[in-house]
Design a protein around this nucleic acid. Structure first.
Length: 863
RNA sequence: GCCGGGAUGGCGGAAUCGGUAGACGCGCUGGACUCAAAAUCCAGUUUGGGUAACCAAGUGAGGGUUCGAGUCCCUCUCCCGGCACCA
């Protein structure tokens, strides 16, 4: 055995052993319990960053740990290979997205391999390959047949200079990222998936997901946003007459409605604008800006009177009809009834525009609602000023009002969801082509299954001005599958969330001639899913939806894809940027800027290292390609080895916590591995350790054995239940420190040391597999580490004769006692009262109470 | 703006069910080894007072519940994630 730890040699050596034994291969075996351990696949952005290292190390630790516990483990890897960054790279460098993506995949695969993850690489998939995305197309066609997929218009960000649709990310302060031009909202036809049809099931099935973080389930529940309310009709005689429908959860306040507001895109708004120039101008103004909810929610609430009125369904009174920028066309009916007295937003709006405020609920604030707004105004209460409904409480009032509306045909109780249908059309090149052909005669015609996949040409290079597919005759021009006439392909591609909504099925059967085969029944569901908390809603919700659709199409028995979920916190780093003259934004990597500090250590200036000009500080945020603040792990791996990188990452913080990146402490992780190596070296150099009678050990050796088995117990719990690898590592370090203080070289001491070192290697193996694999050969020659499994706790070693108790006076620590584990309660309390450190504080005072928590403390209350 | 989290020494973090705050590691200080340095090892390291024993204060801020609060409740501040076209 080498006397010194050499990571490069050790890691090459260990990997050779794993390859020779095909240790990472996953084979379906009905005789063994299966464990499908999945980390969210990466977008191939170029290089791994520390967030990936964290994610994949967590997955690998759990995969290896479960393999040691006897599970048949599947840990696959692949690439979320379609997406916007490849198009951005094309814009920046003129390289085709396909070539750029494949190159990145090759480099990043090499990085993953160098980290020693136990991945079955035979199952690798890339979503940009036709063999994968043909099934996106195939399932889309099935959804179309079942009415789950359908077409309607949607609102997008439009850059009027580049004449192109922008992603929300590409809109900065309401302007296009490249042109600096103010973006506009534009309505275009798109394909939608009816996820709202599954809203109830997506909501109620959350209750089955006992191994998901409560936090994530709460976010999903709120996102789905089920609400019970009433759909209320306001008759009118405009644009040919009709009824304007709104949804409200506060039908009890209907008698306090003082106006009705519609979205700027609402047909009645457009109708009124035809004869109202001022209104038309306002609606035009509302088109400015982006489409995100955050932007709409924070913008100033503004509106205009249409001059039209609608009829209150119960009183028959005319109510003014307003257009308001805070009403969303895509949510509900695109119209709301406004009750300024009991809704904060309506209150502010009514004050601003001088609209009436009519209190109709008696709240804890009383019967009136004077300025300023108080949250109490929104409380439920007894109805007032509401005619025949006066005196009713919330539930009774809603019932009565809904019944009266129903009698007039102007309302009904209704359940609605905040969740909106999933728009999957993207006006982009690098994605799955939507398998539709547009024919002048036949309309939108689905591509027949036998023509799938509709292959995306890989040689196009986007230039920022629209989708190159639309300008590619080879792709766009085709024949109508129905009439054979000249037709045009749909050139929109699918949202990349489609790709990631079912990739975990495909890993189970990557070469299946169908979307999935029987192997998916063996491996699914994923037993442990690991990924960033940023995916808590969208990706996870879409995957759950997709799985339910696949179930309804008879493709799987699963109703939920992920049994247990571990959401890792973000790895954060500083963000630096500079705004261009036109409003565009350029990011700088932390290593590209120089930060100077004043005498107090405060930041004095930030400048670009390249040109010396100032750069702005954007705070800290997630490591990402687009913000250029990712840290490449490569230099860390090269300098210290993969094991040190993995150990440091797991030791830095518990998985769910976000982590501001710093490499301070990497040295410490490396030093620990070096100490471990030396401890094993010194031990094995003395020859084989013979087993001994553990019942006849000295007190010191018995205490050490106790420590070993307490550590196994704690580490097992930390791995299996808590997933706190940082505390598991700390416990192992403590055991190693303890072992280092044992000087004794007698046969019993050597036996106890052998047992401890073996346990340490087995427990550390999931985290630092290379060094443990190699150390094990010397520690236990002839028996592979894999054959040993996870170390077992010896209950006999855990028995303690004496325990330590803490003594408090009035809750303050005043001393400690060592007592026999069998000591009587009264005897322990007498000892505590007699303790000299305690008597100092009890002298002359009456003991009022003694709180005794057995095995922990005695608290003496005096005074 | 809305939804979900978080805040503990100089730093990363620990304290798992309301019971010893600061485990483990980094950094720093001192010492050993060395011609010297690196590496390694040993000791110390929340703050204030004290040679020390020890005492007091202390977990973002303010209030509360309790024999006892980092942990539970209320109010607030700041930071992170998400908000449907970044993935």
């Amino acid at each position: 055995m080498q006397p010194h730890y050499s990571p490069a040699q050790v890691e090459a050596d260990a990997r050779q052993e794993w390859e020779a034994t095909r240790a990472d291969l996953a084979v379906e075996d009905p005789a063994k319990p299966k464990y499908y351990c999945l980390s969210m696949f990466p977008y191939p952005s170029g290089k791994l960053h520390m967030g990936h290292v964290r994610n994949y190390t967590l997955g690998d630790v759990l995969a290896r740990f479960h393999r040691q516990q006897g599970y048949n483990v599947l840990q696959p890897m692949g690439w979320d290979a379609f997406g916007l960054p490849a198009e951005n790279a094309a814009l920046a460098n003129g390289v085709a997205p396909a070539a750029w993506t494949y190159q990145n995949i090759d480099y990043m695969r090499g990085q993953l391999k160098s980290l020693g993850f136990a991945i079955d690489w035979g199952r690798e998939i890339a979503t940009c390959r036709p063999a994968y995305y043909r099934w996106n197309q195939w399932l889309f066609l099935r959804m179309l047949e079942k009415g789950i997929a359908y077409q309607k218009t949607g609102v997008v960000n439009w850059d009027p200079v580049d004449q192109t649709v922008l992603a929300n990310e590409q809109v900065i302060d309401g302007r296009g990222w490249r042109t600096g031009a103010p973006v506009e909202k534009r309505e275009i036809p798109m394909y939608y998936l009816n996820i709202t049809g599954y809203a109830e099931e997506l909501l109620s099935d959350l209750d089955q997901l006992s191994e998901w973080p409560e936090q994530v389930k709460t976010m999903q529940r709120n996102w789905i946003g089920k609400s019970l309310g009433v759909r209320v009709g306001f008759p009118h005689h405009h644009a040919g007459g009709g009824t304007l429908w709104v949804f409200t959860t506060r039908a009890d306040t209907l008698m306090g409605a003082s106006y009705v507001a519609v979205a700027p895109e609402h047909p009645l708004a457009l109708f009124a604008a035809r004869s109202n120039l001022e209104l038309a101008r306002f609606i035009e103004e509302c088109r400015r800006g982006g489409v995100t909810e955050a932007e709409l929610a924070t913008q100033e609430k503004r509106g205009r009177d249409t001059g039209l009125s609608v009829t209150h369904p119960l009183t028959g009174e005319p109510l003014p009809l307003w257009v308001a920028n805070y009403v969303l066309m895509g949510y509900g009916e695109g119209a709301v009834m406004a009750v300024p007295a009991h809704d904060e937003r309506d209150f502010a709006f009514a004050r601003r525009y001088g609209l009436p405020i009519r209190p109709v609920i008696r709240t804890s604030a009383g019967d009136a609602t004077p300025e300023p707004w108080s949250d109490a105004y929104a409380e439920h209460g007894v109805l007032i000023n509401s005619g025949r409904y006066d005196g009713l409480g919330f539930d009774d009032a809603v019932e009565a009002i809904a019944a009266d509306l129903a009698a007039k045909g102007l309302g009904e109780k209704k359940v609605t969801y905040r969740l909106r249908d999933w728009g999957i059309s993207r006006q982009r090149y690098w994605g799955t082509p939507i398998p539709i052909v547009h024919c002048e005669r036949c309309g939108a015609v689905p591509v027949p299954d036998e023509h799938l996949p509709v292959v995306l040409p890989e040689d196009l290079v986007p230039d920022g001005a629209g989708n190159p597919l639309a300008r590619s005759p080879d792709f766009a021009q085709t024949q109508c599958p129905r009439c054979g006439g000249l037709a045009r392909r749909e050139t929109d591609t699918m949202d990349t969330f489609v790709d990631s909504s079912w990739y975990f099925f495909r890993y189970a059967c990557p070469d299946a001639p169908a979307m999935v085969d029987a192997r998916a029944d063996y491996w699914m569901p994923v037993d442990q899913y690991i990924g960033g908390i940023e995916h808590a809603i969208l990706h996870l919700l879409y995957s759950r939806f997709w799985t339910k659709v696949m179930r309804d199409l008879g493709l799987t028995r699963q109703t939920e894809p992920f049994r247990a979920l571990l959401t890792q916190g973000m790895v954060l780093n500083h963000i630096f940027f500079r705004k261009g003259a036109a409003g565009g934004i350029t990011y700088y990597a932390p290593e590209e800027v120089e930060v100077t500090r004043d005498a107090q250590g405060r930041v004095a200036s930030i400048r670009s290292a390249a040109d010396g000009q100032p750069v702005e500080y954007g705070g800290i945020g997630t490591m990402s390609k687009s913000k250029k603040n990712g840290v490449d792990p490569q230099s860390l791996i090269e300098e210290y080895g993969a094991d040190t990188a993995r150990l440091f990452m797991m030791f830095a913080a518990p998985p769910e916590q976000s982590l501001e990146w710093s490499d301070a402490g990497v040295e410490g992780a490396f030093r620990f591995l070096r100490r471990l190596w030396r401890a094993v070296y010194e031990h094995v150099e003395e020859g084989e350790a013979a087993p001994c009678d553990t019942a006849a050990l000295s007190a010191e050796l018995k205490a050490l054995r106790l420590c070993t088995h307490q550590t196994i117990q704690k580490v097992t719990d930390d791995f299996a239940r808590r997933h706190t690898f940082n505390t598991a590592i700390a416990a192992i370090m403590e055991l190693m420190n303890r072992l280092g203080r044992l000087e004794e070289r007698t046969p019993p001491a050597r036996a106890v040391r052998q047992e401890a070192l073996e346990a340490v290697c087995l427990m550390l193996f999931p985290i630092v597999p290379h060094i443990c694999t190699v150390l094990w050969r010397s520690l236990s020659p002839g028996e592979p580490l894999a054959a040993r499994g996870w170390p077992a706790v010896d209950a006999a070693a855990l028995v303690e004769d004496e325990i330590e108790l803490v003594v408090q006076v009035n809750g303050k620590l005043r001393g400690s006692l060592r007592v026999s584990a069998q000591a009587e309660r009264a005897a322990v309390e007498a000892l505590a009262l007699a303790h000299p450190g305690v008597q100092k504080f009890t002298a002359g005072l009456a003991v009022r109470k003694v709180v005794h928590v057995p095995g922990r403390l005695v608290n003496i209350v005096v005074g």
